[in-house]
Structure formats: structure tokens, C-alpha cells
């Protein structure tokens, strides 16, 4: 099965994508994640200002049949959350890499070296 894994993003083994720009990391879920979940109908994301640790659950995404935790790829403080996506969570199904969930101001920028390249992530699928 061919997978949609853009080369310019970083990934986690929990199927999040991460885009690092300066000291801000933008996070969403991958195309593989959305295809496994199916129709996404509900999402819970953290309030701006909350601190999250790398690998910590920062929210929940629910499809009709399942509830899945979202794990932060990086430590830091939530700067913004995508309230439009919370209102229309099926955006993740239609455009997973255009549907960001949160922007995190990194507190441990060196952690980005632990993120997976597109090739490494592809090898997990």
C-alpha cells in the first residue's frame, strides 16, 4: 500500500507528524493514522498555556468506534490549538497534513533530534 508521508515533516512512532519552525513545533496526525481511525468525529485538545512533556498524552481523538490518545512529540508549552479542527474534526480525514492540532513552544529543542524522518517512519508502516 502506498503511503502519503511528506518528506519535509518529522514523525513519531505514535503516528503524529511534527513540523519544527524556529522554536515552535506544529503537530497533527498522519495519513496512516486517520485511515486507521476512520471517520473522526470528536477531538479534545489542550488549552493554550498548558505544558506537555514529550510522549505525554495531550488530547484525544475519537472515531465512531474508537478512542485514541494523542501523544506530544516534544516538550513545551501549548501556544495555540486549532479550534476550527475541534469544530470539524473530519478535517483530519480529508487533509491530515493540512490539519494541525496544536503549536507547541519547545522547552527542550534538542528533543527534535529524536523525531523520525519520513523514511524512518515509512519503515514502521
Amino acid at each position: 500500500m502506498s503511503q502519503n508521508v511528506p518528506a519535509d515533516l518529522k514523525y513519531t512512532k505514535d503516528h503524529e507528524w511534527a513540523k519544527v519552525e524556529g522554536d515552535v513545533c506544529t503537530v497533527g496526525i498522519t495519513d496512516f493514522a486517520q485511515s486507521q481511525l476512520g471517520d473522526i468525529v470528536f477531538m479534545e485538545l489542550p488549552e493554550p498555556g498548558r505544558t506537555v512533556g514529550r510522549g505525554e498524552s495531550f488530547g484525544v481523538v475519537e472515531s465512531i468506534k474508537s478512542v485514541s490518545d494523542l501523544y506530544s512529540p516534544i516538550s513545551g508549552e501549548v501556544l495555540e490549538r486549532n479550534d476550527d479542527l475541534v469544530a470539524s474534526p473530519d478535517g483530519c480525514n480529508q487533509n491530515p497534513y493540512g490539519s494541525w492540532m496544536v503549536k507547541i513552544k519547545m522547552s527542550q529543542p534538542q528533543e527534535q533530534n529524536e523525531l523520525l524522518s519520513a523514511d524512518s517512519y515509512l519503515s514502521l508502516l
Binding site: G38, V41, S63, K65
Partner: peptide
């Protein structure tokens, strides 16, 4: 079969 395309 639990689903084919979209449950919705």
C-alpha cells in the same frame, strides 16, 4: 467485515 469505506 467491520467496515468497507466509511462507517458514516
Amino acid at each position: 467485515p467491520v467496515q468497507y469505506q466509511s462507517v458514516k
